[in-house]
Amino acid sequence: MTLPADLCLNEFNPYNGGTPVNTFTVYMQYIINGLTLGSIYALIALGYTMVYGILKFINFAHGDVLMVGAYIGLLTYQALLGDSTSASWMMLAFLIALVVSALLCALLGMFIERVAYKPLRNANRLAPLLSAIGVSFILSNGAAWVFGTQSRRFPYPFANNPISILGVTITPHQILIVIVAVVMMVALTFFVNRTRMGKAMRATSLDQGTSELMGINVNRVISLTFAIGSALAAVGGILASFDFRVYPSMGTMTGLKAFVAAVIGGIGNISGAMLGGVLLGILESVGAPLLHIPNAMKDTIAFAVLIIILLVKPDGILGKNEKEKV
């Protein structure tokens, strides 16, 4: 059977019913995309920044806690949901899964700190860092062993139909990410600045020894810091897994980018983590198209800009110009 050249020419619908494409809407779309991607980085960056603020130590296992959180969330959600397709139960099961995952990850974070970092608190600065890298490998290889290396899909617990506003498209999931990130940041800022425990945290961050002399239970403060950071990582991991899928090495690149976001924003600074995350997300999204460079290079461009920012402001955008303890 030979088909003539223009048989069955398919009709196609240009996107959005033919709304004229203009540069403004295109760039607005890049920024929206970057904003949501960046909000995920920001959520995870909060964990890096809090731990660094208190211990002056970079918890390289943080990205892998995110991965564990995503697996716990997915498995809990699937177990709760069963064969149900009820919309309200899906949403409820998702919220339960989110809470379960955050709680278990908080415990995991505290456990890791207790076992792998606390015994090294007075050791050489490099020792806890190496210990963190070790924990990172244990978690990601362990997950590969238990769950296999295949990516898994986290199904949306709500109808995720895109909403189009003036040619710019956004999904409920993306809106949720931004809202969660903002709420978490505000809540955390309030907690650190307005509560007794937050005051203890700030004191510990300023001077551990003196805080201890003032009757602050430094061990409890540090445990709590890890618990909060890990719970946030779990939330970030679950929100990210809709986009990124769930797989054992999912924490590596996301964790690295979140870490970079924390440094850019000014590590140790909560608003800085948010700002750094969003900035990195937007740079990644808009950088390559703006410079007309192949999109495979988008990370390269984002990181090149970050180097420039660091050259100008070595302590990060909102970082305090204080002497490094490291």
Binding site: V21, V26, Q29, L37, F244
Partner: peptide, 18 residues
């Protein structure tokens, strides 16, 4: 184009959409 391991293709897709 994208790099092996990339998980976010919105920039590329937005460019195609435009």
């Amino acid at each position: 184009t994208f790099m092996v391991g990339d998980r976010d293709f919105r920039t590329q897709l937005t460019e195609i959409r435009s």
